[in-house]
Design a protein around this nucleic acid. Structure first.
Lengths: 187, 187
DNA sequence: GGCAAAGTGAAACGCCCGTTTTCGTTTGAG
DNA sequence: CTCAAACGAAAACGGGCGTTTCACTTTGCC
């Protein structure tokens, strides 16, 4: 009934690498199976469907992203640094060896006109958590203006991620950082 | 040898509506054919392939977008208004009855890991023209800082478009406008 | 060491998609 | 009107995908 952890990990690793570099729809299940060295029956016993596997990978990605972000926030020394830590986290996350072409959540949202429920939930969770966390981090700086500042920063982060699609995101987070700093300095 | 203009237009209209609301990959050729009331042979004689049709639709979209943007720039009365006119254009373009889910160019870029040459060219053209035009419009305000300001605005525009994928783009261009104004006011 | 659970390998099923072909019909310019 | 060019209707082809099934082999715990 239960799947071994090593098997789950092998599948999640292979799926993470292939889905978000080649695209979710463009990646056939067979490619994931071959990469993971796993048989079809195992995948479908563990995750039920390709869609279930995608949801699981998105879930793991979200937890990893939050962990990286948290670490960057903890490393900052003042309120301003903690709010702008999201850019450090973006930088660090993108430098990882298995980095995707761009945001896995925006990418998945872009590929499906209306995503299956599990995937829509994962995407929503990513957006909601980003907005909520930025609002909390903005509170010390902006007070009642925190939600507005957070919305603006969500736009900056999303814009930075989207720049990857335009082929002009090679300069790290420099542009995004300058925009974010302009917003923070205005308060 | 040549295709009638009415046939080309019927195909382009149907393709534009379906491709960018349901997704390029997710839209089967048959759906476009049915929508256009056209036979397969006609499509393939006129555009060679689905990919060729997509490129043609992107091309037409780009011209329409530039026209709308130009009109908004012409409507503005000062340098600042002309630079920020891109937001008016975004607003107007998105209000059109056949408005897509989000940017057709970013959407196409997101769907293909490495797009066919014709599509990559269309996407590149969109990004390049936006950057060049914003740079020219920023010149009177920012002088030698125009390229940097233009890059920042490209990020803002891309971020605004990407917000549609997060389900938080219902408030028009309000957030994007506030960010853009903060950038312009800083110079 | 043995036995149930988990995984393998390969084949097959059903479905959809892009594209081509064939043939009969319509269109529009000379 | 005429006739070549363009188009419509429908079928077929080749390929790929997600998923299931089945018989066999490996794994790991009592």
């Amino acid at each position: 009934m239960a799947t071994r952890d090593s098997t789950r990990t092998k599948l999640l690793d292979a799926a993470d690498e292939l889905l978000f570099t080649r695209g979710v729809v463009a990646t056939p299940v067979d490619a994931i199976l071959e990469r993971a060295g796993v048989s079809p029956a195992t995948l479908y016993r563990a995750f039920g469907s390709k869609e279930g596997l995608v949801a699981a990978v998105l879930d793991r990605r979200h937890r990893e992203w939050i962990a990286v972000w948290d670490a960057c926030v903890a490393r900052a020394t003042d309120d301003r640094g903690r709010l702008l830590a999201v850019l450090d986290a973006l930088d660090e996350f993108q430098r990882r060896p298995d980095a995707a072409r761009w945001c896995a959540f925006l990418g998945t949202a872009a590929e499906y006109a209306d995503p299956p429920a599990v995937l829509a939930a994962a995407i929503q969770q990513d957006s909601d958590s980003m907005r909520a966390r930025l609002t909390a981090l903005a509170e010390p700086l902006a007070g009642s203006g925190a939600p507005a500042l957070a919305d603006a920063l969500v736009l900056v982060v999303s814009g930075h991620l989207a720049l990857g699609l335009r082929g002009v995101g090679a300069d790290g987070t420099a542009v995004a950082r300058s925009v974010a700093e302009a917003l923070v300095s205005r308060t």
